[in-house]
Simulated assay, not measured.
Amino acid sequence: MPEFKWTGPLRPMKVSPKRSVPKIGWLCPLPDYARTGWPEAEFASSLQHKLEVKTPEQLAKMRAACSLGRAVMDAVAAAIKPGVTTDQLDRICHAMTLMNGAYPSPRNYMGFPKSLCTSVNEVVCHGIPDARPLEDGDIVNLDITVCLDGYHGDLNETYFVGTGSSDPERAERAKALMKCALECLELAMARCTPGARFRDLGEAIQTHANGRGYGVVKDFCGHGIGALFHCAPNVPHYAKNKAVGVMKPGMTFTIEPMVNEGTHRTKHWPDGWTAVTADGGRSAQYEHTMAVTETGLDVLTKRTANSRPFY
């Protein structure tokens, strides 16, 4: 695509064919889009504008899906090192998800060609795993969602690749960006309690990020989750947003702020999926699926003793 104006040094490389899934052996029917590429049930659902309070049985299924999502994340993250391709990371995610009787939720969602999203350096989100080997000093975000027994568990984390010894100053800037993105998520989570407004989370995120000279992406947001991959509420990550609703015990949703080194603006590659920073600066993101409780918050995808350090 010689006429496309790339914003940074990253370029797409060869993408392997979509990985297959068996026709039998699932704990429940696959999401409709697994075969068709179109999430018709999700788009037609009343839960796109109605906030769902889940039953104890539904929450139990959410916890199981999120626990598996965490295990898959930890397994994929353990393989990150210079020379490993993001396509190899996709293979691990795909295989481990299927071996546990679950479906990799991103696969074929609106036609997405892979089983997880891998966003490297200036890629903000929805990066497609390909044949590019990771390099020392890269940062890579893994966005993993599994559908187990009909319920989705969604999380993502950004990891530093290698030691960064070839350019220590650039490495330290990357780690500072990652640290700020994680703090933004934690500050937003600290505001989650029954009665809190979803619209107020963005203020905590943007105030912290802007105070450190970073931009907060406005084009993507957190979301409700459960039997549907995406549903109400919308959870914007910037201040003065118009998100609707207040938190009640039993609600489940994600918070997933994307923090950029420079501008908050994004641009899409010609593949229609890969969103990158408009100025080529790097971007970092962290996400959890969580449930509101009577007293606060239950982080369903929380890290464990097996979770890899971010850097």
Rank of each mutant, 00 (worst) to 15 (best):
P2R: 15
E3K: 05
F4Y: 10
W6R: 07
P12Q: 03
V15H: 06
K18A: 13
V21T: 14
P22W: 05
A34Y: 02
T36Q: 01
T36V: 04
G37Q: 05
P39M: 09
E40N: 09
A41L: 11
E42Q: 10
A44D: 11
S46A: 14
S46C: 11
H49D: 11
T55L: 01
L59S: 03
L59E: 04
A60G: 09
K61E: 13
K61C: 10
R63A: 14
R63G: 06
A65T: 07
G69P: 02
A71K: 15
K81Q: 13
K81T: 11
K81H: 14
V84W: 04
Q88S: 10
D90E: 11
D90W: 07
R91C: 07
T97I: 04
T97V: 06
M99E: 15
N100F: 08
G101S: 05
P104R: 03
M110L: 15
G111S: 04
K114A: 10
K114I: 01
L116V: 05
T118H: 03
E122N: 13
V124S: 07
C125Y: 12
C125K: 06
D130Q: 01
A131I: 13
E135R: 13
L142Q: 06
D143K: 03
I144E: 02
G150A: 01
L155I: 11
N156C: 12
N156Y: 07
F160S: 00
V161N: 07
V161T: 08
G162L: 07
G162M: 06
E169W: 02
A171Y: 05
A174T: 06
K175D: 02
L177A: 02
M178I: 05
M178Y: 00
M178T: 00
E183G: 01
C184I: 06
L187C: 12
R191A: 14
C192V: 12
G195F: 07
R197H: 15
R199K: 15
L201D: 00
E203K: 15
E203D: 15
I205A: 03
T207L: 09
H208N: 09
N210W: 07
R212Q: 15
K218P: 04
F220N: 09
F220Q: 10
G222P: 02
L228D: 05
F229Q: 05
F229D: 01
C231K: 13
A232N: 11
V235P: 06
K240F: 12
K242V: 11
V244T: 14
M247V: 09
P249I: 00
G250E: 00
M251T: 06
F253V: 01
T254S: 13
P257A: 03
V259G: 02
R265V: 06
T266I: 09
H268W: 14
H268I: 11
D271A: 07
W273Y: 14
W273D: 03
T274D: 04
A275H: 01
S283V: 13
G296A: 14
G296V: 11
L297H: 08
D298F: 05
F310A: 15
F310G: 07
